[in-house]
Write a protein that binds this DNA or RNA. Structure first.
Ligand code: ZN
Ligand code: ZN
Ligand code: ZN
Ligand code: ZN
Lengths: 134, 134
DNA sequence: CAACCGGCTGAGAATCGTTGTCAACTTCAG
DNA sequence: CTGAAGTTGACAACGATTCTCAGCCGGTTG
């Protein structure tokens, strides 16, 4: 089996995007990252930012989640294993969450109703202390 | 206090949309509903379908959830109280789920990290038996 | 029953995040 | 150093949803 994946090249742009993600602990949108890079004088085309983020997501390097109004937010999480998030809807600050209970619950409920290939979406939104006091 | 809510009028269009929702047990997109109505010879403008659905959602009459690719799906659920869904990603068939465990878990995790105004998104996706055998 | 006020409708334009296009450019194996 | 092939970026294209606004119609009044 040869999945003949195209060779991946290291470019200034990819390094820049990866770096911007390393530089923060919060979930950021593609546009925010694009702006950050531009300001930092390390400009990268918006399309490239999107492409790079998508690649990182596909490679499991980065997590994505969609805002209530449909915008995608990206974050370089500490652990690569499956986990969930508690995100500040104001500033993006994030806490990685483990939910063994939820995992079992989801799988069980799915099977219980004859559904297969079960997947689950579990995200928590709130307002962090700092944002609440601001 | 006068929340002076504007009077709501019953129109052919609103009745049609409401009826289309009654007619199915599955999560449907605004466009699907619009098409259904058109076919049924009970045409309603797409904008009106969207407006009506939004109103129903605001009134807690209908539940919404977003597809993985950002499309909104609507469904007239049996219970008005908070609950979750196990949805067939193929046909939209849905099972309403109760997750007392999850409710408590979400609230606890949020408070535990000093976040306020906690909200949670918990949806289960799978493939129903019929769709799997097709 | 007719007149009216104001909410409602719909065709089409406008949004907006995201993806597709494609010629010019850059990486890197040989 | 060279050439083949992956990358880039300005800009067009998309697709779901929302906005506009002139014309329409529900329902209340007299
Ligand atoms: Zn915050
Ligand atoms: Zn999980
Ligand atoms: Zn199904
Ligand atoms: Zn819940």
């Amino acid at each position: 089996m040869s999945t003949s994946s195209a060779p991946v090249r290291m470019t200034r742009q990819r390094a820049a995007v990866a770096d911007a993600l390393e530089g923060t602990d919060e979930f950021r949108s593609a546009q925010q990252l694009h702006e950050t890079l531009r300001t930092r004088g390390d400009a990268v085309g918006l399309a490239t930012v999107y492409r790079t983020l998508q690649a990182l997501v596909d490679g499991g390097e980065v997590d994505v989640l969609r805002t209530e109004d449909g915008e995608s937010l990206y974050r370089r999480c500490a652990r690569r294993e499956h986990h969930h998030h508690l995100v500040c809807r104001r500033c993006g600050r994030t806490v990685e969450i483990d939910g063994p209970t939820v995992e079992a619950w989801a799988a069980m409920v799915g099977a219980e109703h004859g559904f297969g290939e079960i997947e689950h979406t579990v995200e928590l939104w709130g307002t962090c202390r700092d944002c609440r006091e601001a």
